[in-house]
Design a protein around this nucleic acid. Sequence first.
DNA 1: TTGAAAGCGTTACCAT
DNA 2: ATGGTAACGCTTTCAA
Lengths: 368, 368
Amino acid sequence: MATIHDVAHLAGVSKSLVSRYLNDQKGVSPESTLKIIAAIKELNYRPNGIARSLVLQKTHTIGIVVDDLCATFIFRLIEGLERGAEDFDVDEKYNIIFCNSNGDVQRKQRHLNFLMNGRVDGIVLYGSLVYDDTMIQQLVHSNFPLMLIENDIEGTDVNKVVIDNIGGAFMATEHLINLGHRRIAHIGGNMNLKITLDRMNGYVRALQRYNVPVDQSLIIFPDFSDVDEWKKRDEFMSQNLYFDRGYVEMKKLIEKNQVPEAIFFATDLSAFGAIKAMNEVGLRVPEDVSVIGFDDEFRAAGSFNCKPVTTMMQPLKQAGYVGIQKLVYSLGHPHAAKERILLNTELVVRESTCANKRLASAEQDTRV
Amino acid sequence: MATIHDVAHLAGVSKSLVSRYLNDQKGVSPESTLKIIAAIKELNYRPNGIARSLVLQKTHTIGIVVDDLCATFIFRLIEGLERGAEDFDVDEKYNIIFCNSNGDVQRKQRHLNFLMNGRVDGIVLYGSLVYDDTMIQQLVHSNFPLMLIENDIEGTDVNKVVIDNIGGAFMATEHLINLGHRRIAHIGGNMNLKITLDRMNGYVRALQRYNVPVDQSLIIFPDFSDVDEWKKRDEFMSQNLYFDRGYVEMKKLIEKNQVPEAIFFATDLSAFGAIKAMNEVGLRVPEDVSVIGFDDEFRAAGSFNCKPVTTMMQPLKQAGYVGIQKLVYSLGHPHAAKERILLNTELVVRESTCANKRLASAEQDTRV
DNA sequence: TTGAAAGCGTTACCAT
DNA sequence: ATGGTAACGCTTTCAA
């Protein structure tokens, strides 16, 4: 590859002058300009970006590290991030690069090191795995410009945008209660995710708020200890695992004859699996049991050939949008206060919830 | 940020020695090692990767540029690329970074420049947009290590893995013919994609091969001239556009009373839209018209609440897998011959195709 | 075992 | 308007 030195030499001028031309600075005569242009063309010269970054101490790049770039809902985040960067400032166009950690802490650390080693000006980290908490704590302490999305680590001064999972789970459960259900189960998610506890929390709070007794036997956390084995499979996709867990736990409930009136799932994916299990034994959703999920996984629904499910929509696009904007802003304002931005979820009523049979027949009784 | 100089200073040794320690080279006394370790810890030192890359002329990174990172099928490519890089060599772990060009040539060019400016050792380019052909030609001539996926530009010496779209379209059409259909329409894709022509080609060849007359009025190419307007929308997703075009063209066929016996769609997405249009007027798929698509867009099917569709599966995962491996290999063997790897598609029979009614009743006649 | 110095490809300051 | 030179943070060669 030709360097600026080669160009200068061929054009018969100094490196400084070529550099000035390259950066649209004044003080380059028309004659020099012509010679430089010719030399650049002749040598097919392209400036070396990392040399540039090295001296400028600036890369104009944001790195995004995602736990699962193949997740069915991740497109929302991507869109939000890109729009956010695009809209932020016309002449401050940041490059965005994505890294996929695949839920592997080692790999995540590798990506993080890679990016922080002068590769990018700031990092957006998406995911709430519990077991890389110490890693992220370290990251925060390193003072590298950072934006955490959906990872509400405590006690530290860091920018983050978090989604109100507790509130969302509350609303979901409330929706079921309002429909007249009382025996409401909760089938939780992977305990390796912080949000899993939040969602259970919201569920419990809603029950308490409406004086529905909390029945421990109706709070179910599937076993995710074999994740690593699943991952080794050639056709592994995370959504299949959640689907399977929903299916398995539902089967157990059916066998134990403990099918509840309604179920709040920590994720739509498990709801899809459970619905399959119910269909297999002739249980109808929502007539026999109402089902509400979380995440609005409408893309995944197709993979599992599942009916449209009532769910809590996460504003992941908005999260990406505001997250990257705040990050870019803080790059220009290093002393800006760190912020914790809280976003709300939204109830999307579809075809998997309906009024409780008791309630319905009671109404009919009244009419008669 | 602390530099190697700071570490050397604090440890009371030279930069050279620290560098040697950092790179696990022999010739560092135990005492020095101890001092260096202490200094690194104290200063929270991390080596600067781009300075390192600058002198080493190597980044150990591969850049992936994708036209639409949010496409419903892109996860296959991602998985293939990552597995390929992972499996290639144990101690040659390449970092992989993704850039999303969003089908925007400007942005693609920006990403390409960014990556080629010393950021990565090689680039994988996915997509077959026709209007960035000259850009890619330039890229090829720049001699930068490159792997083209699904972009069969001609007459140039470049590594590429292409999928046999002509053959796939042939098989799809053949499938319909074998089911007894004769009046077979083709609803094509976006003419901005090279593969669109290939797929029409395969369709025509299959008809000719089986002596089915080619009826020009049954070859339909939807108008995609308003793409840019669609893109500006806040909730734009490419799959919606293709869905819409399938819907619209099908409506036209229905209104003109020209519904064929079977249709081969250049993409499942349009098939989904068309099926909706048919459902609306009571036409049944596959009983009344058989439908075959392309791409195996099972994830998108859910978004559109569409039944499982017979389709041609593209081996995109395999494409990523072999593509990145060949690229990494050629990084280590600069004079290895460039290759064109051809991958085949696979027929996936699902619920949208069945034997032609004529054929079925003819059989019945025979029995009677 | 250790260190000095040159060099990777830029930019920027200071002269001229 | 132009050029020399130091600097960015690292590796590597050569010499001690």
